[in-house]
């Protein structure tokens, strides 16, 4: 079971995760309007910017984050933005959307000029997240855990970050045990996705370069 304090952390994190999301009108634009390649590029860029702004608002709600050194806050966000973005996008692709919406989204991304070599691992990741049938609580906690990675570049006080990440890991571990009693590997599988995210993050800079050139 979760302690009262752990339950409070979980509710708080989930509420913040649900509250801070990309504005609906922007998401609608992505589905409803037709764009040429340049406008497509601009829209995806605006979405990425919005993703980062939403991520920062969510992160401010993670218990203890605001008390961290200001430059360390930036190092954590810079280091995790891409991973958190892929995690949030994975949720879009695994949710049951109205008929045809997933295809429109996938088509738009495939026609954005990003090279196939980067698109395939991205959709493989979305698929592997989909297989886990993650609950909203797991998404919110995993995002918080990703942000609070103590090994990000330029981080000065790693121990302070570890102290914030550990309780989140424990809440996720217990939550998994409660929700998936017949799948003892579920928690380990979730953490395994973080390793995949690292790989995507690693290739992201390369992907952007190829996209810009294209």
């Amino acid at each position: 079971e979760l302690s009262q304090e752990q339950q409070a952390i979980l509710s708080f994190i989930v509420e913040a995760y649900q509250k801070h999301r990309i504005p609906q009108d922007m998401a609608k634009k992505l589905l409803q309007e037709h764009f040429n390649a340049d406008e497509n590029f601009l829209l995806l860029t605006e979405m990425a910017t919005s993703h980062v702004q939403v991520l920062v608002e969510f992160t401010k709600n993670i218990p203890g984050f605001s008390a961290l050194d200001h430059e360390d806050q930036i190092a954590l966000l810079k280091g995790s933005a891409v991973e958190a973005m892929f995690l949030r996008s994975a949720q879009v692709f695994t949710r049951k959307l109205p008929h045809g919406h997933t295809e429109v989204l996938e088509d738009r991304i495939r026609k954005s000029g990003i090279s196939e070599a980067f698109i395939t691992p991205m959709f493989n990741f979305y698929k592997s997240i989909g297989e886990l049938q993650m609950m909203q609580e797991e998404h919110a906690l995993l995002t918080a855990i990703t942000i609070l990675s103590p090994d990000r570049p330029y981080l000065k006080d790693q121990q302070a970050v570890e102290r914030l990440q550990e309780p989140m890991l424990e809440v996720l571990r217990r939550f998994c045990a409660m929700q998936h009693p017949l799948e003892p590997q579920h928690f380990a599988r979730l953490l395994g996705r973080l390793t995949e995210l690292r790989t995507l993050n690693h290739h992201h800079a390369e992907m952007l370069t190829s996209w810009r050139m294209s």
Partner: peptide, 21 residues
């Protein structure tokens, strides 16, 4: 537009609460 800003600029602005700029 925000899309011309780098990742760090967007983070710094958002941390300071200047989303409207």
């Amino acid at each position: 537009p925000a899309s011309n800003l780098g990742l760090e600029d967007i983070i710094r602005k958002a941390l300071m609460g200047n989303l409207e700029e």
